[in-house]
């Protein structure tokens, strides 16, 4: 199957673009690693809660709140990398069919799809920004006073960062499909 995503041979791309892409990919990877470490942290936390409760009669306060905020962070930290690695679900039967008969049409379709995705994630980013500002300004928190509280704004910020990283990857993807569309060897993608 043709792979428009990273890590496949894409010799038709000019060096300057490959340079930009490498930088973007490193940033995406950093977010991915932070998200990965967060999963580990959640595991340790839940274990500490259970062991604390069973063995020492001292559960860790706020575990449900921390876990429910962490999962959102985990997802948005990694969604750009998931896209880059081609993990977002799609059906490829029609695309493969088109690829065999009209590879340029395939590139065009890919370009249009990616533009639509860019518009959507831009909407998501723009509408999520006020939610972050609100959480920051009002200092909203999860949990209960007297037991455990944690601010909400870091999660709302991570949603923005994750959308931005996904946007960068989508734009790179759109440009890649545009190069494929206009390249003389477009058929050999």
């Amino acid at each position: 199957m043709t792979d428009f995503h990273a890590d496949s041979g894409q010799a038709f791309l000019p060096p300057w673009f490959q340079g930009i892409r490498r930088i973007a990919d490193v940033m995406t990877l950093v977010l991915n690693v932070i998200g990965t470490l967060l999963i580990l942290a959640v595991m340790v936390l839940v274990n500490a809660d259970v062991i604390g409760r069973v063995a020492f009669n001292t559960p860790v306060s706020g575990v449900p709140e921390i876990v429910s905020m962490s999962i959102v962070a985990i997802v948005f930290l990694q969604v750009a990398q998931a896209f880059r690695k081609g993990r977002l679900t799609r059906t490829d039967a029609v695309l493969d069919y088109i690829q065999k008969r009209a590879p340029r049409l395939r590139s065009l379709l890919e370009f249009i799809f990616t533009l639509a995705a860019i518009a959507l994630i831009w909407q998501l980013f723009a509408a999520s920004e006020p939610l972050f500002v609100k959480a920051w300004v009002r200092g909203t928190y999860e949990g209960t006073v007297g037991d455990f509280t944690a601010p909400i704004w870091p999660v709302k910020l991570i949603i923005l960062i994750g959308c931005a990283a996904l946007l960068v990857q989508l734009v790179l993807h759109a440009i890649t499909s545009l190069f494929a569309l206009t390249s003389k060897k477009g058929t050999s993608l």
């Binding site: 409760r53 009669n57 559960p59 706020g62 575990v63 449900p64 007297g146 037991d147």
Partner: peptide, 9 residues
Amino acid sequence: KGTGAVGVS
């Protein structure tokens, strides 16, 4: 808190 019971959310 203060009863000796362990409160679990």
